[in-house]
Design a binder for these strands. Structure first.
Lengths: 183, 183
DNA sequence: TAGATTGTTAATCGATTAACAATC
DNA sequence: TAGATTGTTAATCGATTAACAATC
């Protein structure tokens, strides 16, 4: 995994000792403990905001559910989508979002809408009792500290890819000069 | 942006000097130079492999095209999808992939298929003259060094979110002890 | 010349790695 | 007891920040 044994031990010890000196780690125990650290030991009710292709893909991807991340509803600005379903998740009109969150103890809101909309919705969500936003819009959101924001900026990822292509091509033409070849 | 002036200058100087002492940066020049570093100064022909919801979302997202990342075709294992279109991009049968790559000088292959398939396709791609793989499958791919791999592991992102929720809740209950509260 | 701003070297900080003690 | 493996402290390395010189 390109990680030293030292690093593994050091990292584990941030959270406590999981093994027995001279004996080893009980991998099953270790696995569940790491699960607890990551919050995978309980359910996380979620809602989707924006039932386009990206949102639908996330709802249909069942591995999240296995880990306790369950979509309770989807929302969309287009009124004609209301009542339809994505997989077994029903689409609601946007206005019902705050009420639904409160009634169903929603923890995580998944934003798969354009950035202009995302900023608006985030403003509404700032008043709701949610714990986190999973943001796929290409913008940074400003919400209270109690709401965790995790951004998935796909364009950043693609530009990183592009940079690595350029850097590799560079490396080929150059006759191994300077520090740019490292790593 | 939560970045010190020092860091900006240090980072820029990794790639050379872009400003004039006592004068400042020409932002327009700086912008295009950074674009060149990221490889945004020329086109990157791409193909999609896996025309499900996620793949369709990527094809339809037009901001990539603006930056020079253009989908030339899509591919899918389901033979019945062949001939259909996602936006203005035609879906081809999987068997045509290597040939298409060669004929059209494809640089980047976007993998939006299940991990078992992804590993297989990666094996085929190892023989093709591509420069990079943008991998959305939840697995690591083994390909020659000349092919850059950029992974988008959404489940990692979601677990990071979940961890931050747990950590914040922890912080609330604790009476500000130890090092766990930092940052 | 004074003020402002970048380039570059030095100091600081944090994370990774190595070493060794503790334990089975 | 010897070998193996984790916990923990020390050493090393790299990245961030601060300081200052160079230039407009």
């Amino acid at each position: 995994m390109h990680v030293t044994a030292s690093q593994i031990r050091q990292d584990f010890n941030h959270f406590g000792g999981f093994g027995q000196q001279g004996y080893g780690y009980n991998t099953e125990y270790l696995y569940t403990e790491i699960g607890k650290i990551l919050g995978l030991d309980h359910q996380h009710p979620m809602v989707l905001v924006g039932s386009g292709n990206l949102g639908s893909a996330l709802v249909r991807y069942m591995n999240f559910r296995r880990r306790g991340f369950v979509f309770k509803a989807a929302f969309d600005i287009s009124p004609e989508k209301a009542g339809r379903k994505v997989s077994d998740v029903t689409i609601h009109p946007m206005e019902e979002l705050p009420e639904f969150i409160r009634r169903n103890n929603i923890e995580i809101v998944v934003l798969t809408i354009p950035k202009q909309e995302a900023v608006k919705v985030a403003h509404t969500l700032a008043e709701c009792p949610i714990k986190a936003i999973w943001n796929f819009a290409h913008c940074d959101l400003h919400v209270p500290d109690r709401i965790q924001v995790e951004n998935v900026h796909l364009s950043d990822s693609l530009m990183k890819l592009s940079y690595n292509i350029r850097r590799f091509e560079e490396g080929k033409s150059t006759t191994n000069v300077g520090s740019d070849n490292g790593e």
